[in-house]
Simulated scan of single mutants.
Amino acid sequence: VPIRAIGQVFTMNMHQDALGDYRMVNSVTALVPDARIGWAPKMDPTCELAGKLGDMDASGHTFTYDLREVEGGTEVTQTYEWMSVKDEEFLKMFPLVSEEQLAGTLDRIESAVS
């Protein structure tokens, strides 16, 4: 289902070597067609990792992608923000995604749309 509105929810299967496989439920926080998309993930309470985290609130961070047409393509700026994380134990884990992993995400997006 295409993303059409702020507040829309979608799930994403994830994997990190340290955590294994898990699933995130994402709420769209920003949407300007062809210019911006952002979402706030939280752990899917039905996945195995959620049980291992116990009472930890794994939410409060966001990912936002701003797109700008430039000569020869599109410039993408990715913002990874965790200022709204409220759970102190979860906050100690940040950044969850390294600068190299963020760059890898942009590389995979480029490959997918090229």
Rank of each mutant, 00 (worst) to 15 (best):
M12H: 06
M93E: 09
T29M: 08
V70H: 02
I109K: 13
W82Y: 15
F10S: 00
C47I: 04
R36Q: 13
D57E: 13
L67A: 15
L19D: 09
R4A: 13
E48M: 03
T11Y: 05
G20K: 05
G104I: 04
E88A: 14
D44T: 04
Q78M: 14
A103W: 05
T79G: 01
P95K: 12
G54F: 03
H15Q: 13
T46C: 02
G73A: 09
E81Y: 10
D17R: 14
A5E: 15
A112H: 13
I3T: 04
S27P: 00
L96M: 13
S98K: 10
Y65Q: 04
E110D: 14
V70E: 08
Q8F: 08
K42L: 06
H61I: 00
E89T: 10
E89A: 15
T29A: 05
V28R: 07
D55N: 15
P45Q: 00
M24D: 10
V9Q: 12
K92S: 12
A58E: 01
M24R: 05
D57Q: 14
I109V: 14
G7F: 02
E75H: 12
G73V: 01
Y80G: 10
W82G: 01
F90I: 01
A30Y: 08
G51S: 10
V9Y: 05
D66L: 03
P45C: 00
P95L: 11
F94C: 06
F63N: 13
A18F: 11
Q78H: 12
G73P: 01
K42Q: 11
M12S: 08
G104Q: 11
D17T: 08
G20N: 10
Q101V: 07
T74Q: 07
F94L: 01
V9F: 05
Y22N: 06
L67H: 09
G60P: 04
S98D: 11
A103I: 08
I6D: 08
I37C: 04
V70W: 06
K86V: 05
E48T: 03
G51Y: 06
Q16P: 03
T64S: 15
P33D: 09
P45W: 01
S98F: 06
D107H: 11
D87P: 02
D57V: 07
E110L: 06
K86F: 02
R68P: 00
L31F: 15
Q101A: 14
G51M: 07
A58S: 10
P2K: 05
V70N: 07
L102G: 11
T74P: 05
P33G: 08
G7I: 02
D107W: 07
Q78N: 07
E100Q: 13
T77G: 01
A30I: 00
V9T: 09
P41Y: 03
A40V: 00
S114P: 00
E81A: 12
W82F: 15
T79W: 01
N13Y: 01
V113T: 12
K52T: 03
E71P: 06
T46R: 04
Q16S: 09
E48N: 06
L49N: 05
V113P: 08
V70T: 09
L49V: 07
V113M: 13
S84Q: 15
L53V: 02
H15I: 00
G72Y: 02
M24Q: 11
W82T: 02
T11Q: 10
A40E: 14
K92V: 02
A103Q: 15
V28T: 07
Y65H: 04
V85N: 05
D55V: 07
L67D: 09
E88F: 08
V85P: 03
M56L: 09
T11R: 12
Q8E: 15
